[in-house]
Nucleic acid binder design. Structure first.
Lengths: 248, 248
DNA sequence: GAACTCTTGTAAACACCGTTCACTGAAACC
DNA sequence: GGTTTCAGTGAACGGTGTTTACAAGAGTTC
């Protein structure tokens, strides 16, 4: 079984240490501190040795991005697995909260993976991670009644492609859905939800709300309530910042 | 009148050239290319000379951020001034489109100003620039009927502060509004709109939609329509990607 | 066991970076 | 005319990514 030779084991161990050191530097001191020489220093080796493991500084950062996304995926899955019997709308709420919590707890990672314009770093990793989880949940909501006609026809082609991705993610979980439930209108709302969710989380992580928000959580909850209503889940159940009686 | 001495004029001119060179480097080759030595090279001087103008590389980047925001503000104002007689909902639409267009045309600038976690760079410059323009427009919509009760009470305090900022921006334009129109419910929807607008634009600029979008414009238009409806503007007038009749 | 290759590391060097410091020379001031 | 002010220089320091030539151990082959 363990056909890894001694050399292979050592190499794997060193690579693990490299990733670990890079991650620690990122978390402690930000992106600019993730230096080949700093990593090498942590391992007690010299910088050029790292070229035996990665082609360039850039390649190492790319690997770091992948690791980060894997970690986030794990975190989201764990939060979701905590209550497997929950109703689907609760699950959506859970995974949205989990995304926000993870981002706030890992601002440097979030910034690294997300915010570099169009370069190969990150591509769309967060979107993929999150939507492969939340997308099927949202889309599987039998109650919602969005129809394809709401969607601008120009978008049909793109959405159909995304529909296939989501369908794959759904069937990977073992659940079976007929194509009727996973219609284009719903897919479209999944994307719209991602826009709002990402907008809020990015603004919060980067501290870029247009005014000082002393406690952004109720704002997030409120946005989430609205979002869930918009995508066809019934009236929001649990609500943190309870609004005082309706009326208009 | 021209009490600027010869030396002062030369200094001002050099500083202008520094900013110009920095901006050119950013646009051509990205944030990492904006180095003191590269700037100095463009001006035909040596790097230490730049310390006569800026305390550090960081201070220079901060100045660059300010310049960028000023430019964006100018661009938005110009787009809005093109049709001063337009109805308020058209103006909102115009300024939202202008924000997207500017961001897409200046991805490096957008990334620099926006995407650095919490550091003093940028603070919330884009939000300020945009919302000082669009906020009053949205908030001045007499037709909308949001009430404070919709807003989670925890947010009242923060929103009141933002309300004052917007009120200041409104009165700066000469228009008079009674407090009734600029109520908290509307302020809240202004913020929610900013979340969606920013979410879409950032995802598009950074190329981070969860699937390949061949033409994001109709998606933006569609989001904008929905957003304007949500904040109480009547049915969207102009609509790019006409949906084919209702039915399912 | 000797000879060989393959792999992992080193040391030195290159070009670049931000920053500091002692300095020059010209403009501005009295 | 003498003095001060100040933009700009050149050299230096410690940092960076990357390349190159080289050493030394691990694994393999005969």
């Amino acid at each position: 079984m363990t056909e890894a030779t001694r050399r292979e084991r050592l190499r794997a161990e060193t690579e693990r240490e490299i990733r670990q050191a890079a991650r620690a530097l990122l978390v402690e001191s930000g992106r600019d501190a993730v230096t080949l020489r700093a990593i090498a220093r942590k391992l007690g080796i010299t910088a050029p040795a790292l070229y035996r493991y990665y082609d360039s500084h850039d390649a190492l950062l790319r690997q770091l991005c992948d690791d980060i996304c894997d970690d986030m995926a794990t975190a989201l899955h764990e939060d979701l697995a905590a209550d497997p019997t929950a109703k689907v709308d609760c699950k959506v709420r859970t995974v949205c909260h989990a995304f926000r919590r993870w981002a706030l707890a890992h601002p440097q990672e979030f910034a690294l993976v997300f915010a570099s314009p169009r370069d190969p770093l990150g591509a769309d990793q967060f979107g993929s991670v999150f939507l492969r989880l939340a997308g099927p949940l949202i889309a599987s909501n039998q109650a919602a009644n969005h129809v394809d006609a709401e969607v601008p026809s120009v978008l049909h082609e793109d959405l159909v492609r995304f529909q296939q991705v989501l369908a794959g993610a759904v069937s990977a979980t073992g659940v079976e859905l007929d194509g009727h439930v996973l219609n284009l209108g719903k897919i479209y709302h999944v994307v719209q939800s991602w826009v709002r969710l990402y907008g809020h989380v990015a603004l919060e992580v980067f501290g870029r709300f247009p005014f000082a928000v002393t406690n952004p959580e109720p704002m997030f909850d409120s946005m989430l309530d609205q979002m869930l209503m918009d995508i066809g889940f019934s009236e929001a159940p649990e609500s943190a910042g309870a609004p005082e009686s309706a009326g208009r």
